[in-house]
Design a protein around this nucleic acid. Structure first.
Length: 272
DNA sequence: CCTTGAACCTGCGGGC
DNA sequence: TGCCCGCAGGTTCAAG
């Protein structure tokens, strides 16, 4: 489920309640997700205080009052659930459970494409999972000049390129389609031919992500909603999952194609 | 280096 | 109703 806006929404939902909370106990209900849990995860977490929660691309970063940072990725189906007290029974896919001072935190992930691991704060940037990542779209480094240079090197269609996390971190399958719709760029257009539109693309990627974050933020005000029904917010998409429905600009039916194994949606008339 | 396809895993909806 | 298939918002690895 989660692309950058969903991850950011989860981050915002967790930050206020969890900041300053000490971890009283940790329960592991299996030994791995996409990668193994660190063997000493429990002991390195127990007794620590969560000082802040950050984000890089689609990764959540829980900074502790030790040298450790918890790196978490939601994969396709992961979520953090926050409750006032421990649930009576564990859900089928509750893999990591933590009792904090005032809350009970659960990491649930049916498909187990997510991950939770630890890194030393001073080597966070060099951590294997983060080292190759491109800039977060909201960082200055994701500039028109930067994107333009990157696009010039790519011959393939622009849409999968936008999803390359080493280029820019956080754009996934939904918002790649949505950003290209805003920019009026056809998803199949060779990346190097889109270089001229780099400035618009940077702006539109940010615009579409920002709008999604804001719509999420408004429907997710407190922790009850982090743990709440439905989980993720409903954003009104322009093209994603709208095959056959009229383009909101020109009424042309939205088309669906497959690129690099993923579904892509676009307006064949106003995206050139 | 770039690009694509398959693999990882579970759940759900559609078609028969 | 039940079964089978394909598909799902992510990443990684192999191979072309």
């Amino acid at each position: 489920m989660p692309e950058l806006p969903e991850v950011e929404t989860v981050r915002r939902g967790l930050e206020k309640p969890l900041k300053g909370q000490a971890i009283r106990s940790v329960g592991l209900r299996r030994k791995d997700l996409r990668i193994p849990f660190p063997k000493d995860l429990g002991q390195r977490l127990t007794g620590r205080v969560i000082e802040s929660i950050g984000r890089k691309g689609k990764y959540l970063l829980f900074h502790l009052d030790s040298e450790d940072v918890v790196i978490a990725h939601l994969g396709m189906s992961g979520n953090f659930l926050l409750n006032k007290k421990a649930p009576e029974i564990f859900g089928k896919h509750d893999h990591l459970v933590m009792q904090l001072d005032d809350y009970h935190l659960t990491f649930n992930d049916p498909r187990r494409f997510g991950l939770i691991t630890l890194a030393k704060a001073h080597e966070l940037q060099k951590h294997k999972l983060l080292a190759a990542m491109g800039p977060d779209p909201f960082e200055k480094a994701f500039s028109p000049a930067y994107l333009k240079e990157a696009l010039k090197r790519r011959k393939g269609p622009i849409k999968p390129v936008l999803m390359d996390q080493t280029l820019v971190a956080g754009v996934g399958n939904i918002y790649a389609s949505e950003a290209l719709y805003l920019a009026k760029v056809a998803p199949g257009k060779p990346a190097h031919k889109v270089a001229a539109a780099a400035e618009a693309l940077v702006a539109d990627v940010r615009k579409v992500l920002q709008a999604a974050i804001e719509s999420g933020g408004s429907s997710l005000r407190d922790f009850m909603q982090v743990s709440g029904e439905g989980g993720y917010f409903q954003h009104r998409f322009n093209v994603y999952d709208r095959k056959g429905e009229p383009c909101r600009r020109c009424k042309t039916p939205i088309k669906e194609i497959r690129q690099a194994g993923r579904s892509t949606f676009f307006c064949p008339s106003c995206q050139k």
